[in-house]
Amino acid sequence: MEEIRLSVPAAREEILALRAGQRVLLSGTVYTARDAAHRRMLEALGRGEPLPFELEGAAIYYCGPAPALPGGVIGAAGPTTSYRMDAYAPALIERGLALMIGKGPRRPEVLEAMRGRAAYLAAAGGAGALLAGCVLECEVIAWPELGPEAVRRLTVRDMPLIAACDAHGGDLYASGPAEYLRSAGR
């Protein structure tokens, strides 16, 4: 299986070069945001206010980590289910969001918004302890009152991901099961 090393923030060409099905080792800066933070970001945009981080070229990780153990960087930090952010994602992609990291399929309107602009990487859902080991630094940068849903800036190294949906309509949630079933002769 092909494995790509990707650093974020990434150049647009690198995002566009990703293809559904590739394994990706991601390093660099990612921002955690899930349900409540997305709602607040969209409200802020509606009021013309700045977001907690620069969206252009950014990577958002749909994740609400568990608290760190004493002396630890972060607690378990796996992905949450992405479809709940589908209502918000197109507006963020239009404003420059380049990568989303989560788990589970995306709606057609998100795949459409991603065309020529953004990619979606899947992390193994439920692998919170494993993924925590890829996080080198973690800092809450906005809305601490949201607890696990606060926006955090993470520095990650070699986070194991799968390019699930690419910037060209490729969708492994459709093609992966179909390809497996063909191979199994079903």
Partner: peptide, 20 residues
């Protein structure tokens, strides 16, 4: 990866999944 996650939880004392 999911099996390695169980090992990681046992080694570190972290929960298996952040969604506890």
């Amino acid at each position: 990866d999911l099996c390695r996650n169980l090992d990681a939880a046992a080694e570190t004392g972290l929960p298996i999944c952040q969604d506890t």
